[in-house]
Deep mutational scan, measured.
Amino acid sequence: QIFVKTLTGKTITLEVEPSDTIENVKAKIQDKEGIPPDQQRLIFAGKQLEDGRTLSDYNIQKESTLHLVL
């Protein structure tokens, strides 16, 4: 699982696999929060994550925290 922290300070927990794409993660966030993926920007280690890449591409491991910017 990974954590996604929103600007409001809320933390969302997501069940993911390293092979999941960023697009996939955004879809999971939409399921939980109702935020359309095209409004979501995910930041990890100061980098904006691209939809077509996977979590493992960015070396995002379990218990990692991503930041969600709208």
Score class of each variant (00 low, 15 high):
Gln40Cys: 09
Leu42Ile: 07
Val69Gly: 06
Ile12His: 03
Leu66Asp: 01
Arg41His: 11
Glu50Lys: 08
Pro18Tyr: 12
Leu68Ser: 02
Leu68Asn: 01
Val4Ala: 03
Asp51Val: 06
Lys26Pro: 00
His67Ala: 07
Thr6Met: 13
Asp51Ser: 08
Lys5Ala: 07
Asn59Leu: 07
Lys62Ser: 15
Gln30Asn: 09
Leu49Cys: 05
Ser64Glu: 08
Thr54Lys: 12
Gly52His: 14
Ile29Asn: 00
His67Asn: 08
Lys28Gln: 10
Gly34Cys: 07
Pro18Gly: 10
Phe3Ala: 04
Arg41Thr: 15
Ala45Ile: 06
Gln39Pro: 02
Glu50Arg: 07
Pro18Arg: 05
Gln40Trp: 06
Gly34Ser: 05
Leu70Phe: 11
Gly9Gln: 04
Gln1Lys: 11
Asp57Ser: 14
Gly46Glu: 05
Thr21Phe: 08
Glu50Gln: 09
Asp20Arg: 02
Pro37Glu: 07
Ala27Asp: 07
Gln61Cys: 08
Lys26Met: 06
Gln1Tyr: 15
Asp38Gln: 11
Ile2Lys: 01
Thr6Asp: 07
Gln48Gly: 06
Ser56Tyr: 11
Ser56Ala: 14
Val25Lys: 00
Leu49Gly: 01
Asp38Met: 10
Pro37Cys: 11
Asp51Arg: 04
Ala45Ser: 09
Glu15Arg: 07
Tyr58Cys: 04
Asp20Ala: 07
Lys62Tyr: 15
Lys47Pro: 01
Asp57Lys: 03
Glu23Ile: 12
Asp38Lys: 12
Arg41Pro: 01
Lys62Gly: 14
Val69Thr: 09
Val4His: 01
Asn59Ile: 04
His67Ser: 08
Pro18Met: 13
Thr65Lys: 05
Leu66Ile: 12
Glu15Cys: 15
Asp31Gln: 15
Gln1Ile: 15
Val69Met: 12
Leu14Arg: 00
Thr54Cys: 08
Glu15Gln: 12
Thr11Leu: 13
Glu15Tyr: 13
Asn24Phe: 14
Asp38Trp: 13
Ile2Cys: 03
Gln61Thr: 12
Ile29Glu: 00
Val25Pro: 00
Gly34Glu: 04
Asp38Thr: 10
Gln48Asn: 12
Leu14Val: 09
Leu70Asn: 08
Lys5Gly: 03
Lys28Ile: 06
Gln1Leu: 15
Ala45Asn: 15
Phe3Val: 05
Gln30Val: 04
Gly52Cys: 11
Pro18Trp: 15
Gly34His: 07
Ile60Leu: 04
Lys47Leu: 13
Gly9Ile: 02
Leu55Gln: 00
Arg53Asp: 05
Pro36Thr: 06
Asp31Tyr: 11
Phe3Pro: 01
Leu42Gly: 00
Ala45Glu: 13
Gln1Pro: 09
Glu17Arg: 07
Gly9Val: 02
Ser64Thr: 08
Leu55Val: 08
Ile60Val: 08
Lys47Gln: 14
Asn59Glu: 07
Lys32Cys: 11
Pro36Gly: 06
Lys62Asn: 15
Leu66Val: 09
Ser56Lys: 13
Leu42Lys: 00
Ile35Arg: 02
Ser19Glu: 12
Leu49His: 00
Pro18Phe: 15
Gln48Cys: 15
Glu17Tyr: 10
Lys28His: 05
Gln30Gly: 07
Lys62Phe: 15
Arg41Asp: 06
Ile2Tyr: 05
Leu49Arg: 00
Phe44Arg: 02
Thr65Pro: 03
Arg41Glu: 08
Gln40Ser: 04
Val16Gly: 03
Gly46Ala: 04
Glu50Asn: 07
Thr21Val: 05
Lys32Arg: 10
Leu14Gln: 00
Lys10Gln: 09
Gln48Ser: 10
Val16Cys: 12
Lys26His: 02
Thr8Ile: 08
Phe3Trp: 06
Asn59Tyr: 07
Tyr58Pro: 00
Thr8Val: 08
Gln39Ala: 09
Tyr58Ile: 03
Glu33Ser: 12
